[in-house]
């Protein structure tokens, strides 16, 4: 039987966090009660996932550019340009998010 604190319960989803693994109840991931399996997860995990997605976009663009150089008849020029633009937009987005994160961190650091 698990005992949850009242602030860990939102609706029927229960979130339990351990700030340190040596603390009681070693649970790294948020616990979700039955019925709601689609709990999103930690912000860091989401961020990492998104960054790897951005990396995938960059790799696609790279691959298309190489194809254009090696076998120019097999790719459309607009596909290459669009992949490059997508890569740039995704990178811009990532940069904006990173700037936001750093701003948030600095705000927290300068509390005193």
């Amino acid at each position: 039987m698990e005992i949850f604190k009242s602030w860990d319960v939102i609706g029927d989803a229960v979130i339990q966090r351990a700030t340190h693994p040596r603390h009681f109840g070693i649970i790294d991931k948020p616990v979700v009660s039955d019925g709601r399996k689609n709990f999103i997860g930690e912000f860091g995990d989401i961020l990492n996932k998104q960054i790897s997605k951005v990396n995938e976009i960059q790799l696609t663009s790279d691959e298309l550019t190489q194809k254009l150089a090696v076998t120019p008849n097999e790719v459309n020029i607009h596909d290459v340009m669009i992949a490059a633009e997508k890569a740039q937009l995704a990178l811009n987005f990532t940069r904006t998010i990173r700037d936001k994160l750093i701003t948030a961190y600095q705000t927290l650091i300068n509390l005193r």
Binding site: N76, I82, K86, L89, A90
Partner: peptide, 16 residues
């Protein structure tokens, strides 16, 4: 994120 770009890209390929 890029739905409209992908849509237009299909148009580009088709007209090409």
């Amino acid at each position: 994120m890029f739905l409209s770009i992908d849509t237009s890209a299909s148009g580009l390929s088709a007209f090409r």
